[in-house]
Design a protein around this nucleic acid. Structure first.
Lengths: 140, 140
DNA sequence: CGGAATCCGAGTAGATACTG
DNA sequence: CAGTATCTACTCGGATTCCG
């Protein structure tokens, strides 16, 4: 992983609760729905390496169905995170690439990945401990 | 005859639990599934302000059902992001608070919130533009 | 190749009712 | 207060098929 760990502003002490009671959500949901999406992140990560065509993406992500890739990529396009370019060749050729906005998101994804890696063992251990203490408790 | 599908069950049958085989994304899913969860983030944000009891959480997050709050908080507990403490009072009193791990996640959530706020307008605009160019295209 | 449309099962969220 | 237990509704994702 690159040492340049940008994108994540060291959060100020005060964490103001967005998306609380009254106010709907400060727009966090929009992002979270996208980031939390199983495939979006993988697509973004893949595109972070450079422009890709539909098939390339599907092969790279492996496990994703055409349907899901289409939907995922459409949503990303709609959100302006990805640009879809169609070349009127035969057969048709389409490539996808991240926009500036999309690229900036990769930094967060990176940060998330870093955090994930740094704590995966701790989490796994916690799960084992929990499952051990709570046998028969299926919470997934 | 009707296309009685090949008796295919829901069995993954060869699908990696990580999502990808040749890429270090394995641990990310665990976190993403948690962060991407609609309620987990809100709970984490709320707990970032300090320990909360069940009811407090439910009132603060407002919109979440008991069931969902229970499930969410259980998962967070299982992952070692939250500690659940039961006080044998009458009536029972339980409080939840973030662990060190959970607190560290708070920073990422904050970063996500920042990003979200910084780009919400851009995204909203992109969506409007897309919806305008693609009328009748319901991808949501 | 890229994508839309359809079918369909599985998992998840919500409302409700009940318990310690 | 803090859950647990159901039952239902709905969305999501996968597989398949057809089109430009």
């Amino acid at each position: 992983m690159s040492p340049t760990h940008t994108g994540v502003t060291a959060a100020p002490a005060g964490l103001d609760p967005c998306g609380r009671a009254d106010h709907p959500d400060c727009g966090i949901r929009d992002v979270l729905d996208r980031v939390g999406d199983k495939w979006s992140v993988l697509v973004i990560v893949e595109l972070a390496a450079g422009p890709r065509r539909f098939r390339q993406l599907q092969r790279a992500i492996d496990g994703i169905s055409q349907r899901m890739l289409t939907l995922t990529v459409r949503r990303l396009e709609r959100d302006g995170l990805v640009v879809r370019t169609v070349y009127p060749t035969v057969p048709a050729q389409v490539d996808y690439r991240l926009t500036e906005t999309g690229t900036s998101l990769t930094h967060l994804v990176k940060a998330l990945a870093d955090w994930s890696l740094a704590h995966s063992e701790t989490i796994a251990e916690a799960r084992r401990a929990y499952d051990d203490e709570h046998p028969g408790n299926e919470i997934r």
